[in-house]
Design a protein around this nucleic acid. Structure first.
Ligand SMILES: [Mn+2]
Ligand SMILES: [Mn+2]
Ligand SMILES: [Mn+2]
Ligand SMILES: [Mn+2]
Lengths: 218, 218
DNA sequence: AATGATTTTTAGATTAATCTAAAAATATAT
DNA sequence: ATATATTTTTAGATTAATCTAAAAATCATT
């Protein structure tokens, strides 16, 4: 039996472990989970005892196969629910995360299998993140940051790096969504801002924005 | 802030309070929640302090207006989710309860409002129980037990009294569902069994079955 | 390699929810 | 009305998850 809290720690370790591929530090987990390092130490010991993680004092943690499986299951549920909320219940992409954080802990194999079918086996969530399939397989999406695209290239928005409500609302206000096509007109060396064209309209976006938009070349 | 456990106690008090209209006893709650009476005593004290219940030592508990509001909100969510599972995710009526027990605790006003709309504002759940509306209003359904219908009367199944998986499966096996029309042919005084006709087919059902089927005369 | 800064762990408390066993109150039956 | 049975409450422990403050280990810098 696995508790909701354990699930959240496992998910945090999973997400942090994907960035840097080395061991995940106690402090990093504490920051991610908005808790204290001492609480993290206690929990990673427990996760280790239960076989979800490998942990050695002062060396950080890593998920075991079993732990990774749990993490991917939670991510799958989270993203499927996000699709449900947007596609079926008219949520906007900046409103789904909080609710999905709760729904991802509902335990029922059948529920998630049927939800998947009901949604027509979506491959990506509303933010462009891939949805693991029933076997835990994750289709690697090849995407690059908009800030890395060369001048003159055409590309299509396929995801966001930051999915905070604030950023997503900014994108809404500027008519940028998944599927939006850009042409890179100019890159300003001074502040690294980028001039882009969307449907014949020209824009200038800051480096910060360009660093949080994933695109694929087209 | 209200915890999941508090919600479950409030729901139990609500359901028990509807049967006998007097105070709900500690033991009754303990039985319903599969816990010990001493745990119940602690919790009803807490609920009382938080303003969800009125409690006097040795006298049992009652929900306050605030507590009843919470209870009805949970019942609404539970039943809406049951409709969702049956109508959209092809669950059968004997499979939904366990999952709805989890889903009823998800906190999001918008979620439940949108779910309600998505399901076309259903008035009853898959077991014939009424779904409270957004204001907490519950349409009183007039229904009687099949065992109380007089010989010769025609009636339609509108609900179940026992919604255990075993009973619901029995009904499935015997082609009895919400909407099924019966005619009462005979009531056997010896064992209180009832002879009924469903679409020209004759059946004998035990008193126990007849006591767990709600019908309305037609 | 020593020192100082940072990170991590330990020790000890706290809160929520539960339990067992014993005590107190209430209900029932003669 | 008294004794007996049942119900309910209290007292004290336990488990999960958290925290603060102090100790220990590791890292970084000279
Ligand atoms: Mn999310
Ligand atoms: Mn997402
Ligand atoms: Mn139910
Ligand atoms: Mn129901």
């Amino acid at each position: 039996m696995i508790t909701l809290t354990e699930e959240n720690y496992i998910k945090a370790i999973y997400h942090l472990g994907k960035q840097g591929s080395n061991n995940v530090s106690t402090n990093a987990i504490a920051k991610e989970m908005e808790t204290k390092a001492s609480s993290v130490t206690d929990m990673v010991k427990k996760l280790s005892e239960k076989g979800y993680a490998d942990y050695k004092k002062y060396q950080g943690v890593n998920l075991t196969g079993k732990g990774r499986q749990v993490a991917i299951g939670i991510v799958r549920k989270h993203r499927l629910w996000e699709v449900f909320l947007v596609e079926k219940l008219s949520f906007s992409w900046d409103e789904v995360h909080e609710v999905a954080e709760q729904l991802e802990h509902i335990k029922s194999e059948k529920l998630i299998r049927q939800l998947d079918a009901f949604l027509n086996f979506p491959t990506h969530d509303p933010h462009g993140d891939p949805i693991p399939d029933e076997m835990g397989e994750i289709k690697k999406v090849e995407k690059i940051l908009l800030s890395e695209v060369a001048i003159g290239e055409q590309c299509i928005c396929v995801g966001v790096n930051d999915s905070s409500s604030e950023f997503l609302k900014y994108l809404d206000n500027n008519n940028i969504a998944l599927g939006t096509a850009f042409v890179i007109l100019h890159k300003e060396p001074f502040d690294n801002s980028v001039s882009i064209k969307i449907e014949s309209k020209e824009f200038i976006i800051s480096n910060m924005i360009a660093n949080n938009l994933f695109v694929k070349l087209s």
